[in-house]
Design a protein around this nucleic acid. Structure first.
Lengths: 223, 223
DNA sequence: AGACTTTATATTGGATACAATCTTTAATCA
DNA sequence: TGATTAAAGATTGTATCCAATATAAAGTCT
């Protein structure tokens, strides 16, 4: 296994580097569900000792990205279908309210930024970049609300979902549809209609959930 | 400084014991905002080394309960007025939706439990027990929704607010009013009216927020 | 005296070493 | 052979030691 350090700036401690890199690897799906995180192995990969690795894993556990059992180590935390459903509902709830708060505070600059993110997403061809660009677009909208705790909750939820979204994207019209729905949300923001933006965001998230659950269902039926 | 271990069961690692104890101490307000968490000192108090302490602090930081700066250590994370407002809004949003989901799934047993928690809260005389009993009551209602992620988010928000609520309680009619509002919420649940329960919960949380902000404002004006 | 430099101390970040526990393999017995 | 037990190896949990950095105190120069 070969991890690459996310940021090698000297202002970051080894713990932070390991944490960021592992988090990224999990979000990106480079580590499958249930994959064990061996401390020694990771320490070697980062050319450090086990201490920073342990602290990084402790943090990941708080985020719900890994599960650890005493003397058995940590594994990437899988998600049940019920949890999947639940987390999407939370997203829809919190993100729609976040955008409702954000719209009245949006400036010309923040709208320009958001449209730029939207275009980056629409033009993206590489599936592995999709979740990140999607997140950037949504957060560029929510950012105007100046609500760090909303963002923290939202990012925590996305962290746990991202790696499941990539697979689905390649097999459906997800990308095209997402772009269309993003455009609608963005234009609602530009016209200052907070309630419409909130409603569209809610439907967008619920739509993605339905699409993913449907995909998982058909895949299970085939097996 | 003298911490007491929350749970000394041998199935818990030192890291977990330190984590639980520190978290409890912060929530309970035994450690003031900005109070430094010296690793050596804590390690001595728990009769252990600094390693488990460091891991515990790393976890607390993920939860937003402490802030650490390289080579300067961790301090209990204070909260700005804006954040206070924001976190209460999040609570109102998520808790009202949690109870909306929970009501249709409540059983006779879960309602009995909730009423018991309600009575424990109503009868409580010691202010230091209030936040915990309040949380138990609310969570006994949300529990029926079988939504662990909702609960996790809610508990994370409460963790950051609890220590600020105690002070306010002693100086207002907060306790009496909370009991009255809890009774209304509970009876909405008992009659199976999810929308009313949700609406009452939303107003309850927003009411507490207004009361606390008002208290803080008058206190600041006096100074 | 006051400002700057230097040294000493305190504190955190990390590495190595050891102990506790789990897992796997080998050995033993029916 | 198959099951059971015992030993070896792997892996995590913790303690101790050293390094890096920050803070505080003492010293020096003008």
């Amino acid at each position: 296994m070969n991890f690459r350090a996310v940021d090698v700036a000297q202002t970051k401690s080894a713990t932070e580097i390991v944490f960021d890199s592992l988090r990224q690897a999990i979000i990106m799906g480079e580590l499958e569900d249930g994959a064990p995180l061996r401390q020694e192995e990771i320490a070697k990969a980062f050319n450090t000792s086990r201490i920073p690795v342990r602290e990084a894993i402790a943090r990941l556990e708080q985020l719900g990205l890994v599960e650890t059992r005493r003397y058995k180590g940590a594994v990437v935390a899988a998600i049940t279908n019920d949890e999947f459903d639940e987390i999407f509902d939370l997203r829809a709830l919190v993100e729609s309210d976040a955008i409702r708060r954000a719209v009245p505070m949006m400036t010309r600059a923040s709208l320009v930024l958001a449209r730029s993110c939207h275009e980056d997403f629409a033009k993206a061809t590489a599936p592995e970049a999709w979740p990140d660009l999607n997140r950037k677009f949504h957060c560029s909208l929510y950012g105007a609300a100046q609500a760090p705790n909303y963002l923290k909750v939202i990012n925590g939820l996305l962290d746990r979902l991202d790696r499941y979204l990539r697979v689905q994207l390649c097999l459906t019209d997800g990308m095209e549809r997402a772009t269309r729905e993003h455009e609608a949300i963005l234009s609602a923001c530009e016209s200052g209609d907070a309630e419409r933006a909130a409603s569209l965001t809610y439907d967008h998230v619920q739509g993605v959930k339905a699409s993913v659950l449907d995909y998982l269902k058909t895949k299970r039926d085939q097996a």
